[in-house]
Amino acid sequence: MTPEQSSVTRLLQQLSGGNKQAFDQLMPVVYDQLRKLAARCLRSEAPGHTLPATALVHEAYLRLVGSDIAWEDRVHFYAVSARVMRHILVDHAKTGKRQKRGGGAEQIPLDEAVVVGPDAPAGILELDEALQRLSALDARKGQVVEMLFFGGMTYEETAAALQLSPATVHRELKMAKAWLHRELSQEHA
């Protein structure tokens, strides 16, 4: 284990022990790693393949921590990464929007890829905003969505992180998806 890896491990253990500060300290580390990985992934992807969030998070994990650590700690890592990943993606989209109005840089705003229709996918900013509203109504559902979709966690891992049964996770997700879908379709109607 490298020195960097052992400090991350420590932080994770502290986090699972209930230390909230560890979360703040982990964030920048994870953030950096995820950005590196995201940039690298693009150039080796064949055109047409999408970039799975899952792969990034797992790789980040391996890089920062190595493979032999308690499972519960690993799950906490993923939960943190999920939050960070969401932050990166939303942050970037917002910057894109700012730039378009200002300096002449040619970034394509992400949410311009939206196709209008009830089954249409929304952009990341609308999704984030809707997710925030959902979390206000029901924090647990918001976390479920964040972990499953931004963190690429499995049902088992999400269940462990939130201390629920996988079946409950399924159930939560079902309603969360329905709610989000409704909210997002209405915006485009």
Partner: peptide, 27 residues
């Protein structure tokens, strides 16, 4: 809405991830 939710969440996340990867630096 419940009948129509297959895959609709995954896409924006993946698109966004792609965009991040595409733009390595910011002004």
């Amino acid at each position: 809405s419940a009948d129509k939710t297959l895959g609709f969440l995954a896409k924006p996340v993946e698109d966004a991830a792609r965009a991040v990867a595409d733009a390595p630096v910011t002004i």
